[in-house]
């Protein structure tokens, strides 16, 4: 990579940082408990909109992993999301009604919060429908992983987003508050992923899975990216570029081995495909606040009108991380 290209990336990173700084005015604190963040605390950062029903389990799941503090941006919820979050003892929440799209799909807000509160903390940036699974996550807390990464001088940890879906139609099993969504959306596609390199940012670009199979079989290039780097030992100069798919400086994107070995990696179980999606899709269609003119939601919307079945005979039923590792969807690397 030429020096000019590298310098362009540097400028780009600075630009995102400035942008994030300007967007600080979008954010009004509903409840700021960031003073309770201590050295070594592990944080979660997330943007939400009308996710009240999903929050109790989300918080429960990540508290059990060992997360110490949550940073939320509430983007104009009308279902009590903000009030609920403000009532949680380990949550800081900011409110905004500004445009999600113009905040680069929420990333400006997240970059702002991370720069201000996450410096020198391991931070997990996830959506409320994403559940982080890492090697040994059933027996070791997340601190075991971050301690190991620290000892190995590794700053970022890569995952693949695994789309989970129910057997049968999406509306068949309504989601109840507090329920583990993976109980309903138990199934996933095990071996139909397509990977290529993005040389500009040095990250991998992964597509495929159930979403490509069910929603984009004729336009695979429009299938959403599944590569995510949610766990980063944050530094105030870092910035997410596009969702959590990639970061700058781009060395953080090298979460994969290029010489035949396997680095440790995890999975984000993506429990988007529940009965709640139908409503969400029509709402997001009307808002038009999502990526690529909400093309993704448009596609869901069209397909969802026929109440589709994503399940197929070769769908795999989720058991635990060991199963995912055997299937080659994640790796322990040299962590044992």
């Amino acid at each position: 990579m030429s020096l000019t290209r590298l310098y362009a990336l540097r400028l780009q990173r600075k630009r995102w940082l400035v942008r994030a700084f300007r967007k600080r005015r979008d954010l009004t604190p509903l409840k700021d408990r960031t003073r309770s963040i201590r050295r070594g605390h592990i944080l979660v950062a997330s943007t939400v909109r009308n996710e009240r029903i999903r929050l109790p389990y989300f918080l429960q799941y990540y508290r059990a992993l060992g997360i110490n503090h949550f940073l939320f941006v509430d983007n104009g919820s009308t279902d009590g999301t903000g009030v609920y979050l403000a009532g949680q003892p380990d949550v800081s929440v900011w409110y905004t009604t500004a445009s999600y799209k113009r905040a680069r799909f929420g990333m400006d807000w997240i970059n702002r919060l991370l720069r201000q509160y996450a410096h020198a903390h391991w931070t997990l940036t996830v959506d409320v429908d994403e559940f982080f699974v890492f090697p040994f996550s059933d027996t070791r807390p997340i601190r075991a992983l971050t301690d190991w990464l620290d000892a190995s001088s590794i700053r970022s940890f890569g995952t693949i987003m695994l789309d989970m879906y129910p057997k049968g139609q999406l509306t068949e099993h309504p989601y109840r508050e507090g329920q583990n969504p993976i109980e309903i959306a138990t199934w996933f596609d095990a071996g139909n992923y397509m990977i290529s390199r993005n040389h500009r940012y040095a990250n991998l670009w992964i597509q495929g899975g159930a979403r490509a199979r069910a929603f984009f079989p004729e336009q695979p290039w429009r299938a959403p990216a599944l590569n995510k780097i949610p766990l980063v030992k944050w530094h105030r100069d870092f910035t997410y570029v596009s969702s959590t798919h990639m970061l700058l400086p781009r060395g953080l994107n090298l979460v994969y081995d290029e010489w035949g070995g396997e680095k440790p990696s995890g999975v984000l179980l993506h429990a988007k495909f529940l009965d709640t999606l139908t409503e969400k899709a029509s709402e997001e269609m009307a808002r038009g606040e999502h990526y690529a003119a909400s093309a993704e939601y448009l596609s869901y919307y069209r397909t969802l009108q026929n109440n589709p079945v994503m399940w197929c005979k070769w769908s795999e039923r989720y058991i635990n991380w060991r199963q995912l590792e055997i299937l080659g969807l994640m790796s322990k690397g040299n962590w044992a």
């Binding site: 693949i160 992923y193 990977i195 081995d257 290029e258 035949g260 396997e262 040299n334």
Partner: peptide
Amino acid sequence: AVERRTRGRSGLYMQSRFP
């Protein structure tokens, strides 16, 4: 574990192994 980290599983392409 060391073997996995240095040689990996042949024929596997995933988010942390892309030779």
